[in-house]
């Protein structure tokens, strides 16, 4: 099992957001987590990535059999956890090339590999750029600075392709995307699917799931997974709306 979350409680500044989440993800699977705004979807993603502003108050997270909570943010990343951000931060002055080269080589170092020679690295960049149909000079610009919403999301998928994670969590990657960008992003994800990796796709709408077909759909509501099912659950949600879940919970 790749990821195992047991009774996870977490919050921020003393306010509890996750109230007992259970989730299991195996290699080769795609999971979708859906739910209304403010139910803890992004918090769950951040907690798995190790964001320090959130406090885990109870429960356990195992990844490849390791207790994740004992690992730093970067070690989780180096172990293969990738978080695609809903709102990627702009970092002026740091070029994407420099940024990716640093990241790729630090991950390689962690795995006991030598740094990638400059030429090889550049070739890898070119190859992965094509995957997400980045044609522009995006890579010479500073990380996310002045990017449009679509460019930012494409950049996230590009970075995912560069780092080849084992577990990728995509937090509302579809938000703010037009239909073309959505297709590009989804294609990128689909090309990266392998039997030895897994995806957790967080989304508010069913739309993305037309392109990235999930094996499992979970509904997160008020800090708990209240319903799980196959891809048809997403369609049912689309049809009945989240009120249906709310009513069922009452």
């Amino acid at each position: 099992m790749l990821l195992q979350i047991k009774n996870l409680h977490a919050g921020i500044n003393g306010k509890e957001i996750l109230r007992g989440v259970d989730l299991e993800v195996n290699a080769g699977e795609v999971h979708a987590i859906m739910g209304p705004n403010g139910t803890g979807k992004s918090t769950l993603a951040s907690v798995i990535a190790g964001r320090e502003v959130f406090d885990v108050t109870a429960g356990e997270i195992f990844y490849k059999g390791k207790d994740l909570q004992k690992l730093s943010i970067e070690d989780r990343a180096r172990e293969g956890i990738f978080l695609g951000f809903q709102y990627p931060v702009e970092i002026p002055g740091v070029s994407i090339t420099n940024f990716m080269r640093t990241a790729v080589n630090e991950v390689r170092k962690f795995k006991g590999l030598d740094p990638l020679p400059a030429g090889e690295f550049l070739r890898l960049m070119e190859e992965k750029k094509q995957l997400v149909e980045i044609t522009s000079n995006l890579t010479n610009r500073s990380v996310n600075e002045g990017f449009s919403g679509g460019e930012k999301k494409k950049n996230e998928i590009f970075q995912m392709a560069m780092l080849e994670p084992t577990l990728a969590i995509l937090d509302e990657t579809d938000s703010g995307l037009d239909i073309d960008a959505l297709r590009i992003v989804a294609n990128g994800v689909n090309k990266l699917r392998r039997p030895d990796n897994a995806f957790v796709v967080i989304t508010h709408y069913q739309r993305l799931l037309d392109y990235i077909v999930p094996d499992f759909v979970h509904v997160l509501f008020e800090g708990k997974i209240v319903k799980s099912g196959g891809k048809e659950l997403a369609l049912e949600l689309e049809e009945k709306g989240y009120d249906w879940i709310k009513k069922e919970q009452e």
């Binding site: 970067e74 990343a77 931060v89 970092i91 002026p92």
Partner: peptide, 25 residues
């Protein structure tokens, strides 16, 4: 920004240095 860099596997010290350099840049 620190979280973003570290999430990509860049160590804390390196990330700090990178951001300081970017600030000066």
């Amino acid at each position: 920004s620190m979280f973003y860099l570290r999430q990509r596997g860049i160590g804390e010290e390196t990330a700090r240095m990178l951001l300081m350099f970017a600030f000066a840049d």
